[in-house]
Structures are given as structure tokens and as C-alpha cells.
């Protein structure tokens, strides 16, 4: 038997980047506990459109936790109260009947609001671009085991590579720092032999771009790691610091 709940929603509405925003409250009945959080927002938008109002704008794409497009700061946590998932993987069974759910956009100088709950995260793309290309000597057809990589390093590189660039780390950080994101992107290449040729240049230019775009300075609070839907470790930040400082002292 399907269980349904009634909820109150407190949602940030803002017409545009320069407009002044405010919270608006909505009420939603018959929300199935089996539905996902974004399906619940779809329900709300259908209700709003049906009554001739503007729907709530929010980012979403794959809805299976791998694209990094969904965001939302739900009840004081990026990607909601559940751990290690993105907003699209959050289900309404995590909420109680009659509960008030507060939904805010990512708030950070580096991520200006486009409209309502949608923020501009192109800053992350710019940081990635600043990292530049990776040289790979293809030569002939390489043997699969010709480049030995230890299991430990391969695992750490893969863990770092699981970052989907959603920006929850920046949203969670009291300093608005993007260090967890940048450190994951630097680490996934720094750990592997394929990434060595441009390693120093990459660390320097990605950090420079991050600073230029107005992200804060890391103070190692660890909020990013705790809220990261992909469990990226802050030890990547220590690796980025090593890579960056080594590159600077080489100059």
C-alpha cells in the first residue's frame, strides 16, 4: 500500500541574478513516500503551472546521481539530510508527514544565482579548463600491464575521479572554498603516471584560476568531505597543497 504525506515547502524564489530574492511557502498533499525529492518538486511545479503561476526553477539532468547537475540546499544540508547521495537520489521517505522543508540554492560568491534554486557553476568548468591538456605518449599499442600502477594508487585516483563537480563542497564550506573539488581534479591525474608531464603546471594554474574566481581559503573544517555526495576525502587537499607548494618551490 502506498503511503503519502503532506508537506510544507519553504523555497527561495529569485527572478534573476540581480533581483532581490525571498522565501515563499507552499503546501503539497498526497506526496508518495516512494517518490524522489525531484519528483516532489515536479509535482509542485505542475500544481503551480496549473494555477497559472511561475514554476520553481531548479537544476537537474540524469537523476541517477552521476551527472552532478542537481544541487539544492535542503534543511541545512547540501543534497539534503541523507548521506553520500545527490539530491536526485533523495527520497520523500526521509521526511515526516507535516514537516516543513526549507530549500535554498547553493550560496557562494563563486556560484551566483541565475534564478530561484539554479546557480551558475561555470566557475568549475573554468577551473577544469585552466588545468589544460594531458600528454599521453601513445606510441604503438601499449600492453595493459606495461605501465605498472599500484592498487593503492589506482584506488585513490579512482576515488578522486568520482567527483561529479556538483559544488556541494563549496556550498557546505563556511569559507566558500573550492579546495575539495580542485584537489580531487588534481589528484586523479597526479596519482597516475599518465598525468605526470603537466603535473606542476596543472596544480599551479588550477589553483590560480580558483583564487581568481573568488573562492575562499581552505581552513580544514572538513564540512566539504562530510557533505560530499561522493565521499571525496580531504586528504586530496593535502595532496594538492603538496603538489602546489612543490611546483612553486621548483620555480
Amino acid at each position: 500500500m502506498e503511503k503519502t504525506i503532506s508537506i510544507h515547502l519553504k523555497i527561495w524564489r529569485q527572478r534573476g541574478p540581480k533581483a532581490k530574492g525571498a522565501f515563499e511557502t507552499y503546501h503539497l498533499d498526497h506526496v508518495s513516500t516512494d517518490s524522489s525529492f525531484l519528483e516532489m518538486l515536479d509535482m509542485l511545479n505542475e500544481q503551480l503551472v496549473g494555477s497559472g503561476k511561475e514554476p520553481v526553477v531548479f537544476d537537474h539532468d540524469c537523476r541517477e546521481g552521476i551527472c552532478g547537475m542537481c544541487s539544492l540546499y535542503i534543511n541545512g544540508h547540501p543534497h539534503g539530510p541523507d548521506e553520500d547521495i545527490t539530491t536526485c537520489q533523495l527520497h520523500m521517505r526521509k521526511f515526516k508527514d507535516g514537516e516543513t522543508i526549507t530549500i535554498e540554492p547553493w550560496r557562494s560568491h563563486g556560484f551566483p544565482i541565475i534564478r530561484d534554486l539554479m546557480v551558475d557553476r561555470t566557475a568549475f568548468d573554468k577551473i577544469i579548463q585552466a588545468g589544460g591538456y594531458v600528454s599521453i605518449n601513445t606510441g604503438g599499442i601499449p600492453d595493459a600491464n606495461a605501465i605498472p600502477i599500484s592498487k593503492v594508487k589506482a584506488d585513490e585516483a579512482m576515488d578522486a575521479a568520482s567527483c561529479i563537480g556538483c559544488g556541494a563542497c563549496v556550498a557546505a564550506c563556511k569559507n566558500g572554498s573550492a579546495m575539495l573539488f580542485v584537489s580531487a581534479k588534481v589528484s586523479q591525474l597526479a596519482l597516475l603516471p599518465q598525468g605526470q608531464v603537466e603535473a606542476a603546471r596543472r596544480a599551479k594554474s588550477m589553483v590560480a584560476k580558483m583564487d581568481e574566481l573568488g573562492f575562499g581559503n581552505c581552513t580544514n573544517t572538513g564540512a566539504c568531505e562530510a557533505e560530499c555526495p561522493k565521499n571525496i576525502s580531504i586528504t586530496n587537499i593535502a595532496r594538492l597543497n603538496r603538489e602546489f607548494l612543490a611546483a612553486k618551490f621548483q620555480d
Binding site: K10, G21, F23, Y73, N75, G76, H77, T102, E104, R107, S108, H109, G110, F111, A172, K174, N175, G176, S177, G214, F215, G216, N217, T219, N220, T221, G222, A223, E225, A226, E227
Partner: peptide
């Protein structure tokens, strides 16, 4: 200097509801 930069980086609007993530030391904040 760092605190001022970090305050600016946080953005003008603050979160209405902010809960501490598990494992974040009070001292660190």
C-alpha cells in the same frame, strides 16, 4: 586577511537553515 576573504567568498546571502555536518569540529569553525 584570510577571514575577510573567506567571509566575502561565502556570498552576500546567508543560509536560512544551516546545520553542522557530522565530524566537523566546533573549534575548526
Amino acid at each position: 586577511w584570510l577571514s575577510l576573504q573567506n567571509y566575502i567568498a561565502r556570498g552576500k546571502e546567508r543560509y536560512a537553515v544551516k546545520k553542522n555536518a557530522p565530524g566537523v569540529d566546533w573549534a575548526s569553525q
